[in-house]
Simulated assay, not measured.
Amino acid sequence: MIDRVITSGTFSLDGGTWDVDNNVWLVGDAREVVVIDAAHDAAAIAERVGGRGVRAIVCTHAHNDHINAARDLAERTGAPIRLHPADQVLWEQVYGPEVAYEPLGDGDKLTVGGIALQVLHTPGHAPGAICLYAPDLGALFSGDTLFKGGPGATGRSYSSFETIIDSIKERLLTLPPETVVHTGHGDSTSIGAEAPHLEEWIARGH
């Protein structure tokens, strides 16, 4: 089961602020879910969770628009927050050092409702950016690493165009082409649909 809540708020970094709509993904079954990217509105996310247990609140990276409801949702549900520690500097811009999370690493596996989610470390948009791959569902939850139309933005602090291209080439384009890509913003796509476009980006990035 894959469910989505779209929440609205702002993204702030490097002194700028932008209005954004975020995709919050819920993966699991009728008993339990993992929440991917608790953005903006913990009440709306909790309403969609309903009576199900929350196994974890997974942050694909620590830009404020992907984590700003994580503490509130964790307090409501008792679920741990999970994040790759390479994003500590971004995390502390929102929460300081006092809000704890459990570290995620490349190759870690989360299981929820009988569904296995594999952690792929895909730095570039942020140092600790990850994607979650669910082979049983034929789905990838890409955060802001890959969108319909190309890679995530790399024009701000702690980001790197060359690094995100390497991550996509080495970690994502190797997945089956029919894999559905559920993104952090906007419409879903597939690995097969993006691969030809991304080859152009790869050629330009090297």
Rank of each mutant, 00 (worst) to 15 (best):
E170L: 09
Y95H: 15
I164W: 00
G113Q: 10
G155E: 11
I202P: 02
I115L: 15
A153K: 01
T111E: 14
R48L: 07
G138K: 14
A56C: 02
L140S: 06
A74T: 05
N64W: 01
I2V: 13
V58I: 13
H206Y: 11
R31L: 09
T174E: 10
A203D: 07
T174C: 15
A134L: 09
E199D: 11
P176L: 07
R4K: 14
G105M: 07
E75F: 01
K148C: 07
N22H: 01
I191A: 11
T154C: 14
A129I: 00
A69E: 07
A69P: 05
W25S: 07
A126T: 15
I191C: 03
T10R: 14
V35I: 11
Q118V: 12
G50E: 12
L132D: 07
D87G: 00
I130Y: 03
D41F: 00
A43P: 01
H63V: 08
I202H: 06
Q118M: 07
E75Q: 05
K148F: 06
L146N: 03
D166G: 05
S160L: 05
N68T: 04
E98K: 15
T7H: 07
H40N: 12
A38D: 12
D144S: 13
P97R: 12
E194D: 13
L173K: 11
A30T: 09
G138F: 08
S190Y: 02
C59G: 01
A153I: 00
V49T: 15
